Amino acid sequence: AAAEEGFTSPDAASASYLDDEDQAPLRERIRGFEAVEAVVRAELANRAVAGAASRPAPDLESLTAAVERAEAARTAAASAVSRAGQRLSRVTVLGGELAGAVAAWRPAAEAHAVAERMAGLTSGRSPANRHAMSLSAYVLAARLERVVAAANERLARMSGGRYALRHTVDRAAGDRSRSGGGLGLRVVDAWTGSDRDPATLSGGESFITSLSLALGLADVVTAEAGGTEVNTLFVDEGFGTLDDETLDEVMAVLDALRDGGRAVGVVSHVAELRTRIPAQLRVAKSRTGSTVRVVV
């Protein structure tokens, strides 16, 4: 019987005998093993576990590599989060500094906006300036209106009542500046009942128009200078473009200025004027140079 239980002899079986006190811990361990066995058997009876057990064994190397990659990605993400937090802190600081700078800049910006609007208005470049006229042109236009009124008195006489000047805020002929002008002139033709661009006038007509404006300007300057008169006027050339009738009218106007106490100097190559002008300075040129002779 001892041999059936795994003992080599009855003495060996007798030596292995344990009393109840010594057997108690062993029984407790047996019960523990039995409980674990029951749990394991129940787990093995689970279909999911049974199905997993039936599948091929997992590739631990691949799974380990995947875990390492996931860990590296997690580390990189954590680093990115840390850098983003630092940048957020920096941006928050810069945002506060920017808000302070904007608050300090705003009064200057508002003042600049006012100055820029005024600059646009005075330069004639602002859409709010309906005539696109600069401030200087506006001031000069007021003067020009007075000059035109004074010039028309003489132009009417020199043109036989045909022409009169009219001030316009349109761009003057030949004006290529960016501003709209305000110093434009039109010539009103009483014979045709229409107005014309001064550029369409003939040479003689342009001369008497220019002379009228010059004399009108002298009258306005005299009036605005507190009575200080422009006592000397020089008219350089242009007489050769006039017909006899117009020349007579022009000389009559100049004679009237002279009779009024002004000295009028006429520079011309027209021989006919020698008989009309009593006091003359004649310039003669030669190989040795030019000479001046007074003729009274």
Rank of each mutant, 00 (worst) to 15 (best):
T232I: 07
V188R: 15
V169P: 06
P56M: 13
D244R: 01
S16M: 06
L242G: 00
W105Q: 12
E28Y: 06
Q280P: 01
N152L: 00
Q86M: 11
R154F: 06
S290M: 04
A12K: 06
R157H: 15
V230C: 13
A256T: 12
T75P: 02
A70N: 12
S79Y: 12
A38H: 05
P10A: 05
A12F: 12
S123N: 12
V266N: 02
S79I: 01
S206M: 08
A104M: 09
A76S: 11
R27N: 05
S202P: 05
L185C: 06
G289A: 02
G203M: 07
L165C: 05
V91K: 08
R74M: 03
V235G: 04
E272K: 01
T222M: 00
T291F: 05
T75V: 14
L257A: 11
A57D: 03
A172I: 00
I277S: 08
E97F: 06
D59A: 07
Y17I: 01
L18M: 08
G120R: 06
S290E: 03
V235H: 08
R293K: 11
M251S: 01
S16A: 13
W105P: 02
G180E: 04
A66C: 03
L257R: 15
E116K: 14
R29N: 05
T241P: 06
H112K: 12
R74D: 05
V36N: 12
A35W: 09
T75G: 13
D11F: 04
G261S: 04
V188G: 05
A142S: 14
R166S: 09
P10E: 05
F33H: 10
A103Q: 11
G6E: 04
R176M: 01
V220I: 10
G193P: 03
L183R: 00
R276G: 05
F7T: 01
A109D: 13
A115V: 08
R157G: 09
E5V: 02
A73H: 15
V250W: 06
S194R: 15
G100I: 00
A1T: 03
D189W: 11
A15L: 01
S194V: 14
P278F: 07
E71A: 15
R287K: 02
T122D: 08
A52S: 04
A80V: 10
G203I: 02
A263D: 08
G160P: 00
D59P: 03
A48C: 03
A218T: 07
S89K: 10
S89I: 09
A66P: 08
D248N: 15
R47K: 07
A99V: 06
T64Q: 08
L233G: 04
A115N: 15
A42I: 04
R47Y: 07
